[in-house]
């Protein structure tokens, strides 16, 4: 029935990031590395950071899971590359959801924010906001 609605959710650029993830893989000897999973659905996202003079000079992510979790991670790495750590710290869930640009149902919000949790918990040692 709902091809239009589906396409709204699984927009072309989300599917593109899912099928052709940017910055995918591992860094050798990263300055920071962290991985998180969402045990409910088995999504996994990990990130390796290279930090030079307080700036994220290179970044890679790896993982597996649904289109939302993987596209979200891919989009986030694009945004993070070249940012200072201070700037990266300011990224919040609204930024991540805004970037995805789709209406995320409560059931899928954890998928969308898994990569942000990797950034927060891994890179900054902050307690992740587990719920939202």
């Amino acid at each position: 029935m709902s091809a239009a609605a589906d396409d709204q959710f699984y927009r072309e650029y989300i599917l593109d990031h899912y099928k052709n993830p940017r910055n995918y893989g591992r860094l050798e000897h990263p300055d920071i590395t962290h991985e998180e999973d969402n045990p409910l659905c088995g999504d996994v996202v990990g990130m390796d950071f290279r930090v030079e003079d307080g700036v994220i000079s290179d970044i890679r992510f790896h993982g597996r899971g649904c289109a939302i979790s993987q596209a979200s991670a891919s989009l986030l790495t694009e945004r993070l590359k070249g940012l200072s750590l201070d700037e990266a710290k300011k990224i919040n869930k609204d930024d991540v959801l805004g970037e995805l640009g789709i209406d995320i149902s409560p059931a899928r919000i954890k998928c969308a924010l898994l990569s942000l949790k990797v950034l927060k918990v891994g890179a900054y040692g902050l307690a992740g906001d587990d719920e939202e």
Binding site: M1, S2, A5, D6, F9, Y10, C41, D43, G65, C66, A67, I68, S105, R108, C111
Partner: peptide, 11 residues
């Protein structure tokens, strides 16, 4: 991923 399928099925 099964979750993507479930979301599409839900529609």
């Amino acid at each position: 991923h099964p979750h993507d399928l479930a979301t599409i099925a839900d529609r």
